[in-house]
Nucleic acid binder design. Structure first.
Lengths: 343, 343
DNA sequence: CGGTGTCATGACATCGGTGTCATAGCTGAT
DNA sequence: ATCAGCTATGACACCGATGTCATGACACCG
């Protein structure tokens, strides 16, 4: 590998001048610049990041910590939605000419400090933490390295990018109302999740706005853990909804996976989707929403948008711009497909 | 950040001795070592990778190139199976105390040389290329950096880790035969794919081994591109199979997504799975195989195993061990679930 | 007891860039 | 003509580790 000294010798200038050409941090005479650039091209020179880092602390590195990567080996949720966030971050970071280093917690939060230290050792210029679901987290000090949280937030008030669960659910339900639905059931995700609370609010708000009375009988816990025997819970909940004196014309499911299960259960009950009942999901996890028959109406959670926003926010921080304080809410459009009828 | 000099001063030794304690590359007196270790702990010292890299070229970095990360923004396959490979690689690399840098091609193969150069600039000790499907690739020179191919191979004969498509399909069909099936249909993936050819061979071998005559009428192109109007192709193929004088008792689908579509189409035909016909997939893409109703019998393609093997192979190369030449074939077990009846 | 080998440790140069400061050369105002 | 002020460039030290080589202490041998 050629060094800056080789280039300098070949161009007949000092190493420092070559450095100036590369970094454009001081004026260089036109023909000197041309000579240097020619030499660089001829030698195929690439500056050594190691050396650059040592003197100037600009490593060109961004660290990403997530639990996404290693999850799943233990039968946990396989949706890996957060990988879409990682995807988007990678793209934006690369476009900015920086390189992304990734590490994951392997599901153990106590390993985070060590990962942060490892990244510090590599002198990353910024850190992004990606959570696998909308949640509150508590991260160790990063020692002055800018930090952005994606899909989560903390008490310390680090910049955070979050999905707008409330607006998303509200938009979906409003759209359902516009399509003529009045009896709108809601199969929720587990109670503990932040998304559950926010989406519930969105559901209520949409009903209120439409002047539809909230009916508790239409809302039930829908989540079914794989292998934990909770499928019965979902089945029972569905049967109860179907047996109501005034049954729902559409069922909103907490996410697309849940909707997929509902399809299966309804089939065993001989209930046709969407002729007899409409189904909507959440997330727009496309391998499900587009492949199911009929294709699923859902809300695009826009993980990609979250990743992009997080990366951009971090790049701004690295450049020294201090953005606003409030968490940024990202939402995606309602995806209207054949699983819901229009009246 | 404390430096090695701070530690040396604090422990009353020379920097070089501290270096020796850290790297264990030369004997150090017991109590000297203790003093140094105490100083390191007290100061929270972490060696600077930049400096280490510069002098010794051991960067502790592994580069990973894939198209996985950025795919999907354009409506391409959303399965992202290769992300499971990335997952596994990340875990193994981290366990070895190294850090993974990732970059992606954004679907453009012509960007690969630049990514390789970027990684070279960061002095990665090894490179892994992950393809999104079993295929042949052609990569630029890495300039002496060890390279391992995951889910692909090249003419240059770099170490490659591949899914054992033939053995997987064969194992599945053998299992179907053992369950009493004789009329076994096969909805293939597109012709161009390497997996298609290999799995077809496995299918044939299993039939031969069981003494069942191959019936071309039972094999048809099953793949349906999203949005390209090919769904009709799949529907027609299925109808043809069902209308055969001696219809199949089970349909093997080229992958789980295809199986999911088949579920939907069969439902519109009023055909019950598995009571009237059994269905099997390929990949064990769990969000589909476990969530479908009934759960899908399929072959675990074992992407995770591919990633692990690739990472281990690379680590061995970095250590200077030259392994065998032949591509390593990885297979996973048949996942037997309720979508196939036992006779 | 002198010579030799081993062990533990330190001095110093070095990796490849960049920050700091000095300086040569030129312009333009006085 | 003189000098301030600016531009383009170079000399040199330095970032924080490690490789090389030297050296002091000590044990062991004949």
């Amino acid at each position: 590998m050629a060094t800056i000294y080789d280039v300098a010798r070949s161009a007949g200038v000092s190493p420092k001048t070559v450095s100036r050409v590369i970094n454009k941090d001081a004026p260089v005479g036109a023909k000197t610049r041309a000579a240097v650039e020619a030499a660089i091209a001829a030698l195929g020179y690439r500056p050594s990041n190691a050396a650059r880092m040592m003197r100037s602390n600009r490593s060109g590195l961004v660290g990403l910590i997530t639990g996404a990567i290693s999850r799943g080996s233990d039968g946990q949720p396989q949706g890996l939605p957060d990988l879409f966030i990682v995807q988007a971050i990678q793209r934006v970071v690369a476009e900015a000419g920086m390189t992304l280093m990734i590490a994951d917690t392997g599901g153990r939060a106590d390993r985070v400090p060590d990962l942060v230290a490892t990244f510090a050792q590599h002198q990353v210029e910024g850190l992004i933490y990606v959570a696998d679901s909308h949640q509150q987290v508590d991260l160790p000090e990063t020692g002055g390295v800018p930090l952005v949280l994606a899909n989560c937030f903390d008490r310390a008030g680090h910049p955070a990018i979050l999905p707008d669960d409330k607006a998303g659910q509200r938009a979906l339900v409003e759209r359902l109302v516009a399509a003529g639905h009045r009896r709108i059931a809601y199969l929720t995700l587990p109670d503990g999740l932040i998304a559950t609370g926010l989406r519930g609010q969105g559901y209520r708000e949409a009903l209120d706005a439409a002047g539809i009375d909230f009916d508790p009988a239409l809302v039930t816990l829908g989540f079914a853990d794989i292998g934990s025997g909770k499928v019965e819970l979902l089945t029972d909940g569905l049967d109860r909804l179907l047996a109501l004196p005034e049954p729902p014309s559409v069922i909103c499911c907490g996410n697309d996976e849940l909707a997929m299960r509902v399809y299966g259960i309804l089939r065993t009950r001989g209930v046709k989707v969407p002729e007899q009942i409409s189904i909507a999901g959440y997330d727009d996890y496309r391998i499900i929403s587009e492949t199911l028959y009929p294709p699923l109406t859902t809300v695009d959670l826009n993980y990609r948008g979250i990743g992009e926003a997080a990366a951009r926010r971090l790049l701004a921080l690295i450049r020294g711009e201090t953005g606003e304080e409030a968490p940024e809410l990202i939402s995606g459009p309602v995806r209207w497909r054949a699983s819901v009828t229009e009246h």
